[in-house]
Design a protein around this nucleic acid. Structure first.
Lengths: 154, 154
DNA sequence: CACACCTGTAACTATAATGGTTACAGGATC
DNA sequence: GATCCTGTAACCATTATAGTTACAGGTGTG
């Protein structure tokens, strides 16, 4: 299965928070931009909060981004919301027959190669900051149809 | 969710076929090495067959590896068995609000970055051949406990 | 030819992750 | 106190995975 859309939603949320600063956005409002349920937004914001990327407070709308977005990478966000398989992107069948040459050694052999591939992917994510993402969003918007776009329509 | 273990099982199967050459292994035998059901093995071998990596024939045990394993990469195997998300490893929420600056442009922005990260991972897989994997398996085995290992114990 | 063996595949199951939804306790603010 | 909001539990539908049973049909040998 693919990497869940929590990742892209999380990037969406942070971008929206940044662009809308210092306005305090409710989860309901953010949800209308993402086009999902507000609980889904609060769930993901909870993960980002736990990871120290944003700061939320019970009862109070909005969230503060904890540091300049030039210092937040896609990898940070990825690790925050894909907690489940942050250790191993690839899964390896784990009960292979130890009496077989292949079965005995396949796990260790593949783990090395898979880890290397995963690292390569993560390095790419680490090289992109949320600042670059927001810049991309603004550039694309201005080059396409800036006149018809607003932040506040949800 | 993580990348399915079909990938690691597929590598296991090809390695076993190679090391056991020219013996013809039944899916039942292979399954006992992987420690799974023979249908699971036949299913994955079917995908490898369809991808042109191995050649199987109905009714006849065993499979021929279609080309020297130095010419088969982990990426080839990956693409063969992870057909589902070979296009996009990352999923992006796809119904974001087009009336919002972020919602309108997030999909294209992230797609570019995600594709780059995915390519980096795939490049690593493309740089490893099944020959290297088999070599790794043999080296590890000889350095650990070659005397107690057999290929034929399933 | 008959039989034993094997593959390919359909069908069903259990399990788990995901995303959406309702509900509600409790914090914050006016 | 009334209102709004967050955090979170609970539940559901959907989907992917992996295992299992069953069987049709190909293969090859006695």
């Amino acid at each position: 299965m693919a990497i869940s859309s929590r990742f892209s939603v999380a990037v969406h949320i942070i971008s929206l928070l940044e662009i809308s600063k210092p306005e305090r956005l409710t989860s309901e409002f953010i949800a209308s931009s993402v086009n999902t349920n507000s609980v889904v937004v609060r769930r993901i914001m909870g993960m980002l909060n736990k990871a120290g990327i944003i700061n939320t407070s019970p009862g109070v709308a909005g969230a503060m981004i904890s540091r300049p977005i030039a210092q937040i990478t896609l990898l940070d966000v990825y690790l925050a919301v894909e907690v489940d398989h942050q250790d191993h992107l690839f899964s390896i069948h784990d009960k292979a027959n130890p009496n077989c040459l292949v079965g005995k050694n396949i796990q260790h052999t593949l783990d090395q190669r898979f880890t290397q591939a995963q690292r390569a992917m993560e390095n790419e994510l680490a090289n992109v900051t949320l600042e670059q993402i927001v810049t991309d969003l603004l550039i694309q918007d201005s080059s396409i149809s800036s006149t018809t776009t607003t932040i506040n329509k949800g």
